[in-house]
């Protein structure tokens, strides 16, 4: 129990400690640190509205963070949550604006979310196939596929999926019924992402498939000798991760923007890696981790708004906090390893 507390304490300590260092950075950049940090904290969670913003920003981070955690746990270095998010958003937009009736009821939400998940999953599986069949490193393929997805979106909203008036590079608005129902602007995606975390945790820890994925993640060669296929399971992991990231895309689309734009996700896909690492790849820990990153992003906006800190400075602060907290968490990870007896105590 005490060990458990220590494990939990380290990421929190890391997060808090790095905020302390941010004070120094702000001073160095010539801004009043206390006012800025106050704006950061208040903007992140100082009012119901701030909480709404934080939750909204945490939701895609939670889903993509889960995608990264899931694939990393399976030994697949998926850097492509970004591209999978776009692929999901693209598929969801296509289904919502081209297939579904514009006057449909709330049931439209289901096909849109499913399309997002499937789009992302297909995109993830593409990298999986390249890896399994052609031996292409998933690190390379997922990074490159990010660019493919981004350009596909750019093409789609200037071409086949552009709005009917063809005035701007954006898609038609989603049918009203396809928008996620919201309670005081907290859309259905928020609870959905939380449920996804529970499902992923259950999948990894409690199912036979999750068991196999974990085995492959720990030691692909050993798993192969135990009768598991690292290639097939790796593809499955990428598809599942892609599905989660694609769902994030659909949720952003149907919960927030209502139209497909370029730059729908300016980095949640990459930030997701930090989210997952801070959570030490534990699905349930991704929840607080995503919340932390979401709060940070939201607070950074408030720093700009209220304390007039230029966005470049808030980005430096954000970057330092992320770097330190992730580095801290990983550092603790290796410390924890050193404590156990080393392998083959001969």
């Amino acid at each position: 129990m005490k060990e458990r507390l220590r494990v939990l304490a380290s990421p929190i300590a890391a997060a808090l400690a790095s905020i302390g260092i941010a004070v120094g950075v702000l001073l160095a950049l010539g801004h009043a640190p206390l006012g800025a940090l106050e704006a950061l904290v208040r903007g992140a969670g100082g009012s119901p509205a701030a909480w709404t913003g934080t939750l909204q920003k945490s939701t895609p981070l939670l889903l993509t963070g889960l995608a990264v955690a899931l694939s990393f746990r399976c030994g697949v270095w998926n850097i492509g949550a970004e591209g999978q998010l776009y692929a999901g958003a693209l598929a969801a937009t296509f289904v919502a604006t081209r297939w579904l009736p514009a006057d449909g009821g709330a049931w439209l939400v289901a096909p849109v979310l499913v399309a997002g998940a499937l789009g992302g999953a297909g995109f993830g599986a593409l990298a999986g196939w390249l890896r399994a069949a052609r031996g292409v490193s998933e690190v390379i393929s997922t990074i490159l596929l990010n660019f493919v997805a981004i350009q596909l979106v750019a093409y789609a909203i200037q071409g086949p999926l552009q709005e009917a008036p063809r005035a701007y590079p954006q898609s038609d608005p989603l049918p009203h019924g396809a928008m996620l129902p919201a309670l005081d602007r907290l859309h259905l995606g928020v609870p959905l992402a939380l449920i996804a975390a529970l499902v992923v945790a259950f999948l990894i820890d409690r199912t036979a498939v999750g068991f196999r994925l974990r085995a492959v993640g720990h030691a692909p060669e050993a798993a192969r000798f135990a009768g598991l296929s690292p290639e097939r399971l790796g593809t499955l992991a990428l598809a599942l991760a892609g599905g989660l990231a694609g769902l994030a895309g659909a949720v952003e689309l149907a919960g927030m923007t209502g139209r497909l734009y370029e730059g729908l996700s300016p980095g949640p896909g990459y930030t997701a890696i930090a989210v997952a690492l801070l959570a030490r790849l534990a699905p349930l820990a991704v929840i607080p981790s995503a919340l932390f990153f979401g709060a940070l992003a939201n607070g950074a906006l408030a720093m700009q708004r209220e304390a007039a800190i230029p966005s470049v400075a808030t980005q430096v602060v954000q970057g330092i906090v992320i770097l330190l907290s992730v580095g801290f968490a990983l550092g603790r990870l290796s410390l924890a390893r050193e404590r156990v007896p080393s392998e083959g105590e001969a």
Binding site: G53, K57, R185, M256, T257, L264, S265, L301, A302, S311
Partner: peptide, 22 residues
């Protein structure tokens, strides 16, 4: 005056709202 660099279309609404509320 005040300025915010929004990172994604998903942030637009909340930022409009924050300024309007203020």
């Amino acid at each position: 005056v005040s300025h915010v660099e929004t990172k994604s279309p998903a942030q637009f609404e909340e930022e409009f709202r924050s300024y309007a509320r203020d």
